[in-house]
Design a protein around this nucleic acid. Structure first.
Lengths: 155, 155
DNA sequence: TGAGGATTGTTATAGTCCATAACAATAAGC
DNA sequence: GCTTATTGTTATGGACTATAACAATCCTCA
């Protein structure tokens, strides 16, 4: 959690009065994109001060849930290049520890450090709070429906 | 449509067997993000060869639907800086024409050029085809539900 | 009317994110 | 044992977007 994340976009307004959005308003992909921007903005607004970005959070949770993960595996799971995984892990600072793997001097096992284990619950709580707020006034059923439908998009 | 767009991410797999995604699987925001990545990948795969990116397409449609738009207004609508709007408009090459506005020598009116008007229908058709494919096996009702729910996310 | 401030397009600069390519060290296959 | 593959790492570059500054132009209003 060392380097500073990207600046927060604040100006995105989905619908500006008097503007004709043409075919954009009919596209599912555009609606997904708009929602994603709003959610990410809210995430950054709430967690940016902690130095937590969506990518860092994903890496942190994946490392916590899969101790012993190698950097290359983390990259594959997150769909990024190995060099990118390195940067993210380094960005997590002392929350993550790298330990040698017996029998393979090349690789290192990623795991949460003591500091990481101590801080993760609070970070998860904050992300959960963000996610609840991002769900707005949707009911639990509507959230479940939305997630199920999203999972079927662009399969 | 001059410069080349960003490279296409192909490796993102939402769920890798044997991997524990921890709390990520419970978060609406993560599901939105995954869907958006998949949709954008599909968009780039189909329209990248034409030099069309999501941002360029948005700008193109907005200019077509709102002739006389100024660059600053386009930037405001798209939620980006003026310098970014300039880059996007330049990226559209000869599809967009800038004409002087009578009574304001500073600003320029954006509008589709003849080439832009000629090419836009085919581009829109391709984007519509992409969007239909991105909707996967969702029914028309399900798509409508999904769009309505997405619009209520992170209000 | 005229001076100060706001707006427009543009350029310069920088930062973030992500990719590819190369490298040495190490492991694995035949 | 020799070739090939893998791992972490570094270097480099591109795409995108932001801020800051600038000249030209427009607007406000005393």
């Amino acid at each position: 959690m060392t380097k500073s994340p990207r600046p927060i976009r604040r100006s995105f307004q989905p619908h500006r009065p008097g503007v004709d959005y043409g075919v954009l308003d009919e596209l599912l992909g555009y609606e997904v994109r708009r929602a994603q921007i709003r959610v990410t903005e809210a995430f950054d607004a709430r967690l940016g001060a902690l130095g937590v970005t969506t990518q860092r959070f994903s890496a942190l949770v994946l490392i916590a849930a899969n101790p012993g993960l190698k950097q290359t595996e983390l990259a594959a799971i997150m769909g990024i290049a190995r060099s990118g995984a390195l940067a993210i892990v380094e960005g997590l600072g002392d929350l993550v520890a790298r330990q040698p793997i017996p029998g393979d001097a090349r690789a290192q096992a990623l795991a949460l450090s003591a500091a990481g284990q101590a801080r993760l619950p609070a970070i998860i709580a904050e992300v959960r709070a963000h996610d609840r707020e991002a769900a707005g006034d949707l009911t639990a059923d509507e959230i479940a429906t939305l997630k199920a439908l999203l999972a079927r998009v662009a399969p």
